[in-house]
Design a protein around this nucleic acid. Structure first.
Lengths: 199, 199
DNA sequence: GCGACGATGTATCGCGCCGATATACTGAGG
DNA sequence: CCTCAGTATATCGGCGCGATACATCGTCGC
């Protein structure tokens, strides 16, 4: 998950850990913590695996004589790019508690349309499963359940129902764009899709 | 979190791991996984810490001669009860991604009214913080943000707003009940309705 | 009679991520 | 001058997860 995020961000430019974390925090901070305690070990792991390479910057130091502070700048390797594509296409764990979905979404502009579809539908399936679980929990002996627990389940149910609707909208939009693309005879193009204006 | 849940369930009766997990799954399965890979190590830890004690059942075996299968039955110790009370009163981590909140809620019936209030208000504070973060993210350079990320933030915002409303209802109800409790027998009715402003 | 199957039951492994903490340099402001 | 906030890297212990392994039990079909 961290791996996907790091590999994805390094597509834009080589970066050092602190910068990576800042962007991550800015991009998805409201959904995940992205702590340093995870970031730096992950960076090491990726380097050992050959997915990223240290590029300890000479260029930057050249311009500024006074020394900065040691920073390890990483760039994507060819294997890293491959790995990113694999991870992108992977639907992630089969649980509703899927942290990677948010990260996937953040890189959707770089994701092929069919893969986007698979991810969205996979997510929908899992959320629907959770929804059914919650409905069952609420139905089950309606009265004997602890009142607070029932409230919790009620909130969860509303929230999953809402997410399913949200996913349905996204999926419908994807389909509409696909139809438009097919009609236009143009191959899948560009991170900006067929310029569908704001809702 | 596992600790709180186990200690809480053992208040009802001595139990073995499998049973514990079944109940946990039944009670909060829609919110947490409660895997065995976590359960058994936690049980060990709690036993080592003296919070629970093995009570390898003789009574049950006596009735059934044929042997069952080894099952480790645990019961709460005095320290365990103390620890549970401490954990109950503890508001947990200061992040919105608070797994323990659901567990707390599941044991609310056993929680003192003031502590319930503290937990609910703490949760509200954290959710409100997250809500503000999401609003800021959506406002920030409204146009330059990736479209899918914006969708994600929109969903998150709606969901946090909903949870805040839900928390406000729970809190209002708590306050109403407290007023009713305080008004011991006298028919004097105070001003009606919760004084909590919405949104 | 028997074998397959699903539920009961305990346990371990490696890994990912977290929060806390340590260290050190830099620039800006009082 | 000194302190504070931001930049930057790193490690530590701990928790929870999914996968996997094992063994027993009752039941149902054959």
């Amino acid at each position: 998950m961290f791996e996907l995020a790091i590999l994805g961000l390094l597509h834009e430019a080589p970066m050092h850990g602190y910068e990576l974390r800042k962007r991550l925090h800015n991009l998805l901070g409201a959904f995940r913590a992205f702590s340093y305690g995870s970031l730096y070990p992950t960076l090491r792991r990726l380097q050992r695996a050959g997915l990223i390479a240290e590029e300890t910057d000479v260029a930057e130091l050249a311009g500024r004589t006074w020394g900065r502070r040691a920073r390890r700048v990483y760039q994507l390797t060819a294997e890293g790019k491959e790995r990113f594509a694999e991870l992108l296409a992977d639907a992630g764990p089969q649980t509703w508690e899927d942290d990677s979905f948010g990260v996937h979404l953040a890189f959707f502009s770089r994701t092929p349309a069919e893969v986007r579809m698979r991810i969205l539908e996979g997510r929908r399936r899992r959320v629907e499963e959770r929804r059914e679980g919650l409905r069952a929990a609420l139905a089950r002996a309606g009265e004997q359940i602890d009142r607070y627990t029932r409230e919790l389940h009620r909130l969860g149910l509303e929230s999953t129902e809402r997410e399913v609707r949200w996913l349905n909208e996204l999926i419908a939009r994807e389909q509409a764009e696909r139809r438009e693309r097919d009609r236009g005879g143009r191959g899948d193009r560009g991170p900006h899709g067929p310029s569908r204006k704001e809702e």
